[in-house]
């Protein structure tokens, strides 16, 4: 039986889809059969981040309405044969799907794959309910910002209410220099507030944007960037490996740097 994991956050724009794409790729490159399911009906983006947007013929909605088979709709990645995408419909809204249909779809996928990764839409309305209905585990993505952490907390409460007990945290876009200057919450700060176990720490990295421009997840490109290493570590931890967390401290700022920074500000 496959592991069914929903990637969710509450707030939009914190890196759910980027995380889904990279974790999917990392798990696939480790020999697992992965399907990533875009549950963001009406605002699909996972196909873009994976660079598979031109290969979509049918969507998950077509499967649910019986217009095509599951096989027809699945887009298999030619660069990484272990990974397939089940795209969301772009021309319909989130209310076009109900929880029963979603449950059936995920159950069918779970029979063919080792992992079903569900990319959840932002918010806590119908699209969220559909995305979590069949999930057994959840990965919460947040950034060290007040609104993202607050929304993450709300979502954790909702997941617990749906008896999803295995919930892990990814803190995305950490900027170590800002943490050191006490101008950003640290991973520990966020973890203490949300009180769920940490799955990964992903530093803010410009190469993430470059990789989305190309439609080529960092992990697939074999990048040696910290973000790529972080996502590979997350995949290893999901598989039960104990991997130490990245240390993201910048070298301590000397008095001279501090003074020159001060005078630059003037």
């Amino acid at each position: 039986m496959a592991r069914i994991i929903v990637v969710t956050s509450g707030k939009g724009g914190v890196g759910k889809t980027t995380s889904t794409a990279n974790i999917g790729m990392a798990l696939a490159s480790r020999g697992n059969k992965i399907v990533v399911l875009d549950a963001d009906f009406g605002l699909r983006n996972l196909d873009l981040l994976l660079g598979l947007e031109n290969r979509i013929v049918y969507t998950a909605l077509d499967v649910m309405s019986g217009e095509c088979t599951l096989e027809d709709a699945l887009v298999k990645d030619k660069r990484q044969p272990n990974l397939a995408l089940l795209p969301a419909a772009q021309n319909r809204t989130k209310d076009a799907v109900n929880t029963d249909q979603m449950k059936q779809l995920v159950t069918d996928l779970a029979q063919q794959y080792d992992y079903v990764l569900i990319d959840c839409p932002a918010g806590i309305e119908m699209g969220f309910k559909n995305a979590i209905i069949a999930a057994k585990e959840a990965v919460i993505v947040t950034t060290p910002e007040i609104s993202a952490v607050r929304d993450a907390d709300r979502v954790i409460g909702l997941l617990e209410a749906h008896s999803i007990k295995k919930i892990h945290l990814i803190v995305n876009r950490i900027r170590p220099a800002m943490v050191q200057a006490n101008n950003m919450m640290s991973v520990q700060d966020v973890q203490e507030i949300l009180a769920i176990p940490i799955l990964g720490i992903v530093p803010d990295d410009e190469r993430v944007i470059v990789s989305t421009n190309k439609g080529e997840p960092l992990v697939l490109a074999g990048s040696n960037s910290l973000a790529a290493i972080a996502y590979n570590n997350i995949a290893r931890r999901l598989e039960g490996e104990k991997v130490p967390f990245l240390t993201l401290e910048t070298p301590p700022e000397g008095l001279w740097e501090r003074m020159s920074r001060f005078f630059r500000k003037k």
């Binding site: 006490n182 950003m184 919450m185 640290s186 700060d189 507030i193």
Partner: peptide
């Protein structure tokens, strides 16, 4: 601002 955001978050949560 790091301590401020923690305080505000704890209160609002």
């Amino acid at each position: 601002s790091r301590d401020q955001v923690k305080r505000r978050l704890k209160l609002v949560l």
